[in-house]
Amino acid sequence: MTEIAKVQTYELMISELKEIAKQLDDPETPLEEMMRLHQRGLALIRSCEEFLQKAELTITEIQLEE
């Protein structure tokens, strides 16, 4: 995962991305804030793509409860 905090799950990253898109769409958002959000959005996208490409299937058999 890139500079995005490892702890963030895929779900959190996607919801932050949606929030960023909403703010970028708002003409009231100051220009500097827009540029920061833009960078943050691209970083999140990279990290999500990485998450998907790195995901792998592992299969573990668990012990049944008595």
Partner: peptide, 9 residues
């Protein structure tokens, strides 16, 4: 969507 699978046989 590869992800960890837990098999309960």
């Amino acid at each position: 969507y590869p992800l960890p699978i837990l098999l309960a046989h």
